[in-house]
Amino acid sequence: MSKNQSGQFIGGLLLGTAVGVVTGILIAPRSGQQTRKILKKSVAALPDLAEDISTSVQFQADRLGASTKDTWEDTLSRVREAIAAGVEASL
């Protein structure tokens, strides 16, 4: 699995978990009062979940940025070598 795919997988996993929790709470056979208590707790946990997702996304973006930079530098080096070889061949 490539780095980009693993980042997408982690993001999808976190999003799927959040959606599953909310769906499970809403369709659970509980009284309204119990469901409201659970929803209040879930809403209170949302900032932490958002922070976790944000941290994960930032980490993946940093990894992608570093990978892109390395690839760009490698490509630029090969282009420079090809230009130098072309100039040398034309002389």
Rank of each mutant, 00 (worst) to 15 (best):
S67T: 14
R78Q: 08
V22D: 04
Q33S: 04
S54D: 10
V87Q: 06
G7F: 00
Q60T: 11
S77G: 05
R30Y: 13
L13R: 08
L15N: 13
L14A: 02
R36L: 01
G65E: 13
Q8M: 12
R80V: 04
W72E: 15
S90G: 05
I38F: 02
A28C: 00
R78L: 05
Q5L: 15
A28I: 04
T55F: 09
G12N: 07
A84R: 06
A44E: 01
V22L: 08
Q60L: 09
A50S: 12
I38E: 00
G7H: 02
P29H: 00
K3G: 14
A89F: 00
Q34T: 04
I53L: 13
D48Y: 15
I53N: 08
Q60A: 13
I53T: 11
S6Q: 14
T35P: 01
D70G: 10
L13C: 11
V22S: 04
R30W: 15
L64H: 07
R63S: 15
V21D: 03
A84Q: 06
K37T: 01
A66C: 12
S31V: 00
D48W: 15
T68F: 14
F59R: 13
E88R: 05
T68I: 13
K69H: 11
V57I: 12
S2V: 05
V87D: 07
A66D: 15
V21F: 01
A50N: 11
Q34F: 13
G24S: 00
E51Y: 10
L13P: 09
V21Q: 03
K69I: 07
S42R: 03
A82E: 04
D70C: 11
V87L: 06
Q8G: 13
I27T: 06
A66T: 12
P29V: 02
V57E: 08
A82Q: 05
V19F: 01
K37D: 06
Q33F: 13
Q8P: 06
G11E: 10
Q34E: 06
G16H: 01
R63T: 11
T35W: 01
F9G: 08
L64M: 13
G65Q: 14
W72Q: 14
S2E: 04
A82Y: 02
R36H: 08
L49S: 11
T75S: 11
S6E: 14
T23P: 02
L26N: 07
L64C: 10
T68E: 12
D70Q: 14
Q8H: 09
L14D: 01
I83C: 05
A18R: 09
G12R: 02
T35C: 00
T17S: 12
L46C: 03
G65N: 15
E73R: 06
K3R: 14
E81D: 08
L49I: 05
Q5D: 13
A28G: 01
F9D: 10
G11C: 08
